[in-house]
Amino acid sequence: MSTGMLFALVGALLFTMGAAGVALPGAPLRRIVAFNVMGSGALLVLVGLAQRGGGVDPVPQAMVLTGIVVAVAATALALALARRLGAPGARAASGDDD
């Protein structure tokens, strides 16, 4: 049980929690945050598992950077949609947002 494995297990836990948050019905903002938790979990697994060799493996780090860029883009799109949906005229859809 190395630190890498610990990271991976925490990542798996975060992914599960986040995926449940995205999949279950809820306010859009809550689900967007859950998506970010889920994405971070997957990326944590990626760097965590790859550290087993001892030295630092640069390839997963490059992947994680790419993954973060993708997650930022997806979050921006989701926030823009949720904001438009919450704008006057569509307020009922996000009424349970607190």
Partner: peptide
């Protein structure tokens, strides 16, 4: 795609 990414992470790790 999140599930796909976690799968990729596991495969890279293994």
């Amino acid at each position: 795609s999140g599930a796909f990414l976690l799968g990729v992470a596991l495969i890279y790790g293994a």
